[in-house]
């Protein structure tokens, strides 16, 4: 680690700084200059990128006027391997400590950092800066349809309220078995896709129906209901189907596929919603 990189040392833990050639000279593209200088092997390009971030703080309220959201641009130097989350970290740690966003695992597992990046919902920790056209300012906004608390942090409570309402837990009757509840591979495969959800809300907050009608259960609640409705060990399918037969349930879905497009786990959300619709139409799972 050279002195040029030392100010970013706090960030090194989850960045590949070890791989960065820290000689302070401009780098060629990875591999290009390998023969010229052995130290350049695998060097990672660095470039400047501007992030245009939608900021909001209730504290900005002036003389009784409510605070308004505003756009603010930050320019940072990032590595070719950096993700949008790394760029946000750099801004927060080196330029403006008041920038507020959620993140926890930083590796696409916890679902904390869904945000609208260049107009589409993504996990900031899963999208590389170089993949979202860094030649132009990259817009970063909070996910849509949920109340903004500060900057990129939204109130997730309405989202989790819908999640709770579909009863995302095993419902059984009779005595607890003394051994595990058995299931064939085929039975397990039926709901495999929907077990992958990390509750990031990227899908629900990409849904145009949810944008205008916050009472809609939303794709994520349906995905998590699907997880149990099609589980052969579970006996609560009818109750969950009845919940989703609501005026604000699955029939609100207009098949826009935004949710499937947004899901960072690659869950086929629209297909799951359709399977729930079909189960309701045929009253069988």
């Amino acid at each position: 680690m050279s002195s040029t990189d030392s100010e970013a040392v706090e960030a090194a833990a989850d960045r590949n700084d070890e791989q960065v050639d820290g000689d302070g000279r401009p780098h060629g593209r990875a591999g290009e200059s390998a023969s010229a200088d052995g130290g350049q092997l695998g060097a990672i390009p660095r470039f400047d990128v501007t992030l245009r971030i939608r900021r909001y703080s209730a504290e900005d309220a002036e003389d009784g006027k409510p605070a308004e959201a505003r756009w603010q641009e930050f320019t940072v130097t990032v590595n070719g391997t950096d993700r949008v989350l790394d760029a946000l970290h750099k801004i927060k740690w080196e330029q403006d400590g008041s920038l507020t966003f959620r993140r926890s695992c930083a590796h696409g597992v916890c679902g904390s950092d869904a945000m609208r990046i260049n107009g589409v919902n993504r996990l900031a920790c899963k999208v590389l800066v170089k993949d979202v056209n860094p030649d132009k300012p990259i817009t970063v906004e909070p996910i849509k349809g949920l109340p903004v608390e500060k900057d990129l942090v939204v109130d997730m409570e309405p989202f989790f309220q819908s999640y709770r309402e579909v009863m995302p837990f095993l419902i059984t009757s009779g005595h607890e078995p003394t051994r595990e509840r058995k299931q064939s591979q085929e039975e397990r495969a039926r709901f495999d896709d929907t077990t992958k959800c990390i509750l990031c809300a990227a899908c629900t907050s990409s849904c145009p129906v949810f944008w205008t009608d916050g009472q809609y259960f939303g794709p994520a609640a349906i995905v998590n209901a699907h997880r149990f409705i099609f589980d052969s060990r579970d006996e609560g399918a009818d109750v969950r189907l009845e919940v989703l037969n609501d005026r604000e349930g699955v029939w609100r879905c207009r098949t826009t596929f935004n949710c499937s497009e947004a899901c960072p786990r690659g869950i086929q959300v629209t297909k799951a919603i359709h399977e729930v619709k079909r189960a309701l139409l045929t009253r069988s799972v």
Partner: peptide
């Protein structure tokens, strides 16, 4: 929470 609160659900197949 107002715009998110669902009015009490109605048990009917109307939307279906």
């Amino acid at each position: 929470s107002t715009p998110y609160r669902r009015s009490t659900s109605r048990r009917s197949n109307y939307e279906m």
